[in-house]
Design a protein around this nucleic acid. Sequence first.
DNA 1: CAAAAAATTTGGTCATACCATCGATTTACG
DNA 2: CGTAAATCGATGGTATGACCAAATTTTTTG
Lengths: 225, 225
Amino acid sequence: MQALVKAIEDGHIRVGEELPSERDLAGMLGVGRGSLRECLAILEFLGAIDGRGNRKVLLRDADYIQKARTWIECSNEMGGTEPFNEFRRVIEVGIVGLACERATEEDMAALDVAVTHLDEDPSNYMYDVEFHDAPAVASHNSMLASTIHLVNNLIADVRIRFWDLPSYHEQTQQSHHAIYEAVKDRDAARAQREMIRHLNIVSQFAQNYPARDRGDEEAPVPEQT
Amino acid sequence: MQALVKAIEDGHIRVGEELPSERDLAGMLGVGRGSLRECLAILEFLGAIDGRGNRKVLLRDADYIQKARTWIECSNEMGGTEPFNEFRRVIEVGIVGLACERATEEDMAALDVAVTHLDEDPSNYMYDVEFHDAPAVASHNSMLASTIHLVNNLIADVRIRFWDLPSYHEQTQQSHHAIYEAVKDRDAARAQREMIRHLNIVSQFAQNYPARDRGDEEAPVPEQT
DNA sequence: CAAAAAATTTGGTCATACCATCGATTTACG
DNA sequence: CGTAAATCGATGGTATGACCAAATTTTTTG
């Protein structure tokens, strides 16, 4: 990985050009073909190279690849969780705005179900994911929807830290309802206000319950059903 | 890839559990270890499995992986470019808002440089990327910054279609300046308004100059599984 | 000169081998 | 008997070679 990205950085391979054959490239980089293919698989998944056809073509520069990496890693590392929450705020405010305009009856029903689930079983944070997914689907924008789903998954580990606190449930559940009502009234401005308020609460908890020392970060899933 | 994701979907491997050894897993799925490792490399890059340690741990479900795939593919396929532009609107509105609050002198200088570049050489669309990257950096949020960089790269292919039109240059350059001025005045509301206006122009052009028939878009393989 | 056929290249996949490391098991010693 | 040390096995990481099918290039041929 390092080697290939460096080769791209160094301009040995330029955007728009065909890549050498795997055998040549592997020899060039001084790695085995298998290792190279692991790397190419990632790059193809990222859309950084064109997989169609025999000759692969480089589509994005090294910076793009680097940015893709940081995006994923932002959740784990980086300066605390605040940038993450901020990102979420931007996305979700946009989402609820669109959801108010475009939500169908089914979308509203899904949101209703999610809120009900949260009321009935606040301990299952999957219902929180469900609640935030619903407006995303209702926005009828696949990029927004997939983004917020990724974010909610990436943030799950963080959220578990304070998910069990009763005070967290109280406050968030209240704003969950407020958001739900606003969307139901198709009042975009209000829904966005409430979403910001909601995510600010989450941010506060995230700051008050900072990340434990990593190292034995495991056991995220309490195996009880 | 198919096989492993399906195994996760089918619950043969559950989130939070350790994966079998590569040799076993490969045997299970009926593929070679090399092919399996290509897939695992992608999943690890996506943060879907924990790479640290000898025993890999599944961290995300099949849905997460699927969403990550669609996110990348949204740019190439999906219903036109409008969802894409809409996504960009949401992100960039958030970005300029934060940029107005947080931009340092260096950030402002970088934005200045980008505008100047665009004035001097409107034909080079890399300067447009530079212009949109500048507020992203000024937002001092790494996730927003990397996201918009990814989006701008992914959208580059689309933008080239109308990049050469003089009318496009006129209109966008005007709003580039408007955005620049607003950020410089740290007037978030105005900057956001102007950003929306700007991106609406882009959307209009994108709709008026829809995707050419992708010349080399021939269906790659008749997909017989 | 053009069409057909053969040879080469290439991606895709798999099998094997080797090494360093980590864990568990066994052994040795206090 | 219990603990520390040595041993052994499993595992991930990497490299190499092989095979096949499809694509590409080269050669042959009508």
